[in-house]
């Protein structure tokens, strides 16, 4: 087991009162497994992974629950100890590669810096490794790319450089937060291909956050669907896409226009919009938008249960 998260809760103190961004998220991740986390903005997918990375340093935040990496508890670990893990054993890729790259140094220098910081090898050795990494992420001319500055690269190339950086220390866990959202589909296809290959080669476990159901269905082994800070459904890719159970998952899948076949005259849309975390409904957070809500949904918050393929819904539990 690479990662085991139990009952993770993150809340923030704000001017408008406390906000619970994550409300009881639990999941496990095995070696060389890809977990897809799907959700809309505000669903808590990013915050939960920031918590795992120990990147929530806001003094107004409270983190409860347990995050175990290879059996070691991360919640409450000192910043120093966390820093030794991050970038080394746990690596991350974000949506905008420019947030991870500094504009004033060359790509080669930036990746080498990380290798030297964690591995303490000589500069020449680090540089040799960088060239090898850039080749691995399909830079056509890795040696030349090392002396380039971020602004001289295209968006897709920058994201590849960030991936090379993330892989520089052979991480056991790779967290990718919408890494392809800002990219064109043609470039995205290449990056997804890369993630698959790297997983096979490095045996890294991957948490892949996205809002795109198509991406998840192509990449993930297991899927977790989040809504308003809670996991509403989890299962293997096949379970989730061939037998979606939660009304939100079903509605979301139904509202995607098809790429082939007959065009529907109208798309089955979900009414309303995702709730504000400041004003969550009393019962089930999806209740007000749910086509099958009934009395219990008004008051209670449905739990996920312990099944491998589970949906947090009273209707599903009842069926």
């Amino acid at each position: 087991m690479i990662l085991s998260v139990r009952d993770l809760k993150v809340s923030f103190r704000t001017h408008d009162g406390p906000v619970r961004a994550i409300d009881g998220v639990s999941f496990d991740l095995e070696e060389s497994e890809i977990l897809g986390v799907v959700g809309e903005s505000g669903s808590g997918k990013t915050v939960s992974l920031l918590a795992v990375m120990g990147l929530i340093t806001d003094p107004n935040a409270t983190i409860e629950g347990s995050i175990r990496y290879k059996g070691r508890e991360l919640v409450g670990l000192s910043r120093r100890e966390l820093r030794r893990l991050r970038g080394n054993e746990i690596a991350m890729i974000f949506q905008d590669p420019m947030t991870a790259l500094t504009p004033v140094y060359t790509i080669g220098w930036q990746i080498a810096e990380q290798i030297r910081a964690h591995r303490g090898v000589s500069k020449a050795k680090a540089m040799a490794r960088v060239e090898q990494l850039l080749a691995e992420v399909n830079f056509p001319n890795p040696h030349e790319a090392m002396s380039r500055y971020p602004h001289q690269l295209s968006g897709g190339m920058r994201q590849r450089a960030v991936i090379a950086m993330a892989l520089s220390c052979d991480p056991a866990l790779l967290v990718a937060d919408e890494p392809t959202t800002a990219l064109d589909v043609t470039v995205q296809a290449g990056i997804l291909d890369l993630v698959r290959k790297l997983r096979a080669k490095h045996k890294s476990a991957v948490v892949f956050i996205t809002h795109d159901m198509g991406v998840v269905s192509e990449l993930a082994d297991r899927v977790m669907v989040m809504y308003a800070g809670r996991v509403v459904e989890r299962g293997t890719r096949t379970e989730l896409f061939s037998d979606p159970r939660h009304p939100y998952t079903r509605a979301l899948l139904g509202s995607i226009p098809p790429l082939t076949g007959q065009k529907p005259r109208r798309l089955p849309a979900i009414p309303g919009s995702p709730p504000s975390l400041l004003r969550l409904p009393q019962g089930c957070a999806f209740g007000p938008r749910c086509p099958v809500r009934y009395e219990p949904c008004e008051t209670g918050k449905p739990g996920l249960g312990s099944d491998a393929h589970a949906a947090a819904c009273f209707r599903v539990a009842q069926a």
Binding site: V185, T186, G214, V215, E218, T238, F241, I256
Partner: peptide
């Protein structure tokens, strides 16, 4: 052809 083939689609059984 390349553009359309690159779109990730939800397939229940790959």
């Amino acid at each position: 052809q390349a553009l359309i083939s690159a779109v990730p689609v939800v397939e229940t059984t790959p």
